[in-house]
């Protein structure tokens, strides 16, 4: 039940874009086409799941025993940065096709605040190892859902006659706002049953 709550919460209710404001830069930057958005989404799911696992281990087997919790930010960002590098190398060796699909997105992920965000949230929420991984995956899936929907909407703009001063970021932000209004529909979902 806890896992279902984490999954529903991560994807729909506390969506990283529409309610937590995490990972906005790639959301706005890599959403011009559905293909690139889904590539980025896959890469983010992969890295966030892995980062949740690794940072959980770091937190509970290194930082807590050594009473170095205040080093959390430094430790986590270094781990995430090297993790992304490592993943990039492994994928390049193991599966060139996958590397073709995800390669260009991986370096962008280090500075995606959703990755560090989920690592820190896993600690503040006091999740166990599995719950942390589930949370990382679900949050990333929610992020991916958001960027896919947004890319679909954005592809239609090509035909629109948007006022000059609103083109680019302004219209992207207004659309995201309207999407987050729609996502209000999920507020309170399964309250009393799962939450």
């Amino acid at each position: 039940m806890e896992f279902i709550a984490i999954i529903v919460g991560g994807i729909f209710i506390n969506n990283y874009i529409f309610s937590r404001f995490l990972g906005l830069c790639p959301f706005l930057g890599v959403s011009k086409q559905i293909e690139t958005a889904s590539g980025m989404g896959m890469a983010v799911v992969f890295v966030m799941a892995l980062a949740s696992a690794v940072t959980w281990l770091i937190q509970h087997f290194i930082l807590v025993p050594l009473e170095l919790e205040y080093m959390q930010t430094v430790a986590f960002i270094l781990v995430i940065a090297s993790l992304v590098q490592f993943v990039e190398m492994v994928i390049m060796k193991v599966s060139p096709e996958l590397y073709q699909a995800l390669g260009i997105y991986l370096p962008l992920i280090t500075t995606n605040c959703a990755v560090l965000g989920v690592a820190i949230l896993n600690v503040t929420e006091d999740y166990g190892f599995l719950a942390a991984v589930v949370n990382g995956t679900a949050s990333a899936l929610g992020w991916t859902l958001a960027i896919l929907l947004f890319a679909g909407i954005r592809e239609r703009w090509v035909f629109n006659d948007i006022p000059a001063s609103m083109q680019g970021f302004p219209i992207a932000l207004v659309s995201t706002g309207l999407m987050s209004i729609a996502f209000f529909g999920f507020q309170g979902l399964f309250r009393g049953i799962l939450f």
């Binding site: 909407i153 035909f159 629109n160 006659d161 948007i162 006022p163 219209i171 659309s175 309207l178 729609a182």
Partner: peptide, 11 residues
């Protein structure tokens, strides 16, 4: 209107 008027809104 911000999206370009009739036919341009997505919701």
């Amino acid at each position: 209107q911000v999206f370009g008027g009739l036919g341009a809104n997505f919701v």
